[in-house]
Nucleic acid binder design. Structure first.
Length: 646
RNA sequence: GCCGAGGUAGCUCAGGGGUAGAGCAGCUGAUUCGUAAUCAGCAGGUCGUGGGUUCAAAUCCCAUUCUCGGCUCCA
């Protein structure tokens, strides 16, 4: 009996029933057969050795496909497990999935030490085993068989996994002496795994629950060619050079001090310029968008946060209350600006005619983050949000939300953030106790967010369990140099705080109504935004943001006088820079400014002094030739200016 | 908070029981120079902190703190 196989290009061929993926690959070309790693059959990824018995649409995966890489790395995880078991008999295995770059395996070494030396030994064993070209064999097993096997082996983690599986849908995979509970798919054999690197060891709670035992997670990556591994490792090295913590130190943007306290950044003069430029940019954009700036204190009475619900939710895990000499008073460092803004809203009766009221503040907030969470500027304990709260009528929610989306997109566009993900952060439906408020309002808010995103044609990804405790969010996620994803901009619809603070407005019907609040921060926090910005531009900031836009470099001390005039004139035009009047050769001065990533170097010597010119050199590009100072200013004027805010 | 690895001069790093090292940065002097490092000299550290072992500790042990990689968390 024949079956119909549909190829990705839409063509259909007939094959005998029971044909294997690898045979289909062979029928196309010998080359494809050699490179094939897995096959997609009707949307499911299969082993190449699994017989296909029904009509199917197929796609053959090679190393160039994500599906192919996943199968490759999944098989590599098994190879790792095989090597580990060979060296550490009795080791117990958790889960070992492929990930975006490589794979990991969670293992229980029962206290046996596992460091760099052990890593290297396992790595070596993996390469040895790979060369044996063991075939990955898939085997259907009954639940009883599966339980029996792992009971004998004494692996309680696998037994726990089997417990959650349906009888009849359980498969084992074996290569060499190693058998694993696994749904697959796998590559045909271990031979293609030519280059192996175990990257690091970390702790990970079994099943991601901190109440469970912590297992040892080993991260690794493999490639079909050594060269590809070398390139990957080189790429990692390059990414590390863009790490904002490294550049922040080198470019003197910010610092941390043990004495000040962990997670409390100190902004150095150059970093402060950067920060203030971004702040000015946002202030301008917000004035145009109808926001009113406000300022509120850094602390607030405990009662404020009891009202908002933050105290109940985070009180124990926050900085603890500040006490006054009169013991009856308690104040909290503000972890949020919204309660303060609610109180501003309440300072007078509001009419439906004046809504929406948009209150904006660069509010510095303090949150007690767990010590292990702190990470450069991306996760800190004191940071400044470009916060604002929009108080509007229910019929204005969508329109206001869309306007905020536009503002976030303007920010991202102005700073060249093109690779963001718009994430709709929803409630975890299985854990509603984590959230406050009625279902109906949550559903409404979630619907409004999705509609607003759709209206702007945003491609969104919905993620359950990521909502704030008072409402769903639209989060804009951006990756850092090492591919870690961070939340920057965020927009939230909130029906809860207006209730808790009993916010009201008088409608056209002369009745009291409850406004809706939209929380929003396009940058998110200046700290995190700047961290990601640094990594995006590798410290080469857009000219309008650069802390130092130019350096004037005299050829020798004889021209320091003229050089100073140049500096003064540029400063008059609000262009930032400095004079390098050190007794050094020009090559040295250029090098130092290049290393500091100063956008423009203006070199002045005898010729320039006589002609009243500057020799312009652009960072990373080189000599642009001599020109009048006014010509220089004019030529790059648009770059010096802050992006136009529409 | 949890698991693991680290902390030596301002920075990057060597040294792993026997008098604290290098390069860069800094300071002083010489040099006055044309597009990515001029030369010479000087100075700089209770080896994260606190205990312990030892005749002797940067080095070995314990505790603590901070940093790094993950996990959990993230208003």
């Amino acid at each position: 009996m024949n079956i119909k196989i549909t190829f990705p290009d839409g063509s259909i061929k007939e094959f005998p029933s029971g044909i294997k993926g690898i045979e289909i690959a062979q029928s196309i070309s010998e080359g494809l057969m050699r490179n094939a790693l897995a096959i997609e059959v009707n949307g499911e990824i299969w082993d190449l050795s699994r017989p296909i018995t029904k009509d199917a649409s197929i796609k053959i995966f090679t190393w160039n496909d994500k599906g192919g890489k996943y199968a490759f790395w999944h098989s590599s995880a098994h190879l790792f497990a095989e090597a580990l078991e060979a060296l550490y008999p009795g080791v117990k295995f958790g889960i070992g999935p492929p990930i975006e770059n490589g794979f990991y395996y969670d293992v229980d070494l029962e206290g046996r030490p596992f460091g760099d030396e052990e890593l290297a030994a396992v790595e070596k064993k993996m390469s040895e085993l790979a060369k044996q070209n063991s075939v990955f064999v898939r085997k259907d097993v009954s639940k009883a068989e599966a339980i029996d096997y792992f009971t004998k082996k004494g692996d309680q983690y696998k037994l726990e996994l089997i417990d959650g599986l349906q009888d009849g849908s359980i498969t084992f995979y074996q290569q060499g002496n190693f058998v694993d509970l696994c749904r697959g798919p796998h590559i045909p054999s271990t031979a293609p795994i030519k280059a192996v690197k175990l990257l690091n060891v970390a702790g990970a709670y079994w099943r991601g629950d901190e109440k469970n035992k912590m297992l040892t997670r080993v991260y690794g990556i493999t490639f079909p060619k050594q060269k590809e591994l070398d390139e990957y490792l080189h790429m990692l090295e390059e990414a590390k050079k863009r790490d904002h913590r490294k550049l922040g130190k080198e470019l003197e943007l910010f610092a941390f001090s043990e004495k000040v306290g962990m997670g409390l950044p100190l902004w150095l003069p150059k970093g402060t310029i950067l920060r203030e430029r971004l702040e000015q940019f946002m202030r301008k954009a917000q004035v145009k968008a109808g926001y009113d700036p406000v300022v509120t204190p850094h602390i607030g009475s405990k009662q404020l946060y009891v009202t908002s619900g933050h105290y109940e939710k985070y009180g124990k895990d926050s900085f603890q209350p500040i006490h006054t000499p009169d013991e009856s008073e308690e104040f909290l460092l503000k972890p949020m600006n919204c309660p303060h803004h609610c109180e501003i809203y309440k300072t007078k009766p509001r009419s439906y005619k004046e809504l929406p009221v948009r209150l904006a503040e660069f509010g510095t907030v303090y949150r007690y983050e767990q010590s292990g969470e702190l990470h450069g500027l991306t996760r800190v304990r004191g940071f400044t949000q470009d916060d604002a709260h929009i108080f509007c009528r229910p019929d204005q929610v969508k329109e206001e939300f869309v306007k905020v989306i536009d503002l976030v997109l303007l920010v991202f566009k102005s700073l060249g953030f093109e690779n963001y993900t718009a994430q709709v952060s929803l409630r975890d439906p299985n854990n509603k106790a984590k959230y406050i408020g009625e279902d109906a309002l949550w559903d409404k808010a979630e619907r409004e967010i999705q509609e607003a995103a759709d209206e702007r044609g945003l491609k969104t990804v919905a993620v359950l369990g990521e909502a704030a405790f008072y409402g769903p969010k639209l989060d804009f996620m951006v990756r850092d140099a090492l591919g870690r994803s961070w939340q920057l901009g965020t927009i939230q619809v909130d029906y809860q705080l207006p209730q808790r603070f009993e916010l009201e407005y008088v409608g056209s019907d002369n009745q009291k109504h409850r406004p809706v609040m939209i929380h929003r921060a396009p940058f998110g926090s200046l700290e995190r935004f700047i961290a990601v910005l640094i990594e995006h531009c590798a410290g080469n900031f857009p000219l309008w943001l650069a802390p130092e836009q130019f350096a004037v470099l005299p050829i020798s001390e004889k021209f320091n006088g003229y050089a100073q005039q140049v500096v003064d004139k540029l400063k008059e035009s609000d262009i930032r820079g400095f004079l390098d009047d050190r007794d050094e050769k020009i090559g040295r001065k250029i090098r130092d400014s290049e290393v500091k990533k100063v956008p423009f170097m203006l070199i002045v010597g005898e010729k320039e002094a006589i002609e009243g010119k500057v020799a312009v050199r652009k960072h990373g590009e080189g000599d642009k030739g001599a020109m009048d100072l006014s010509e220089f200013v004019e030529k790059f004027q648009s770059d010096f200016k802050m992006p136009v805010v529409d």
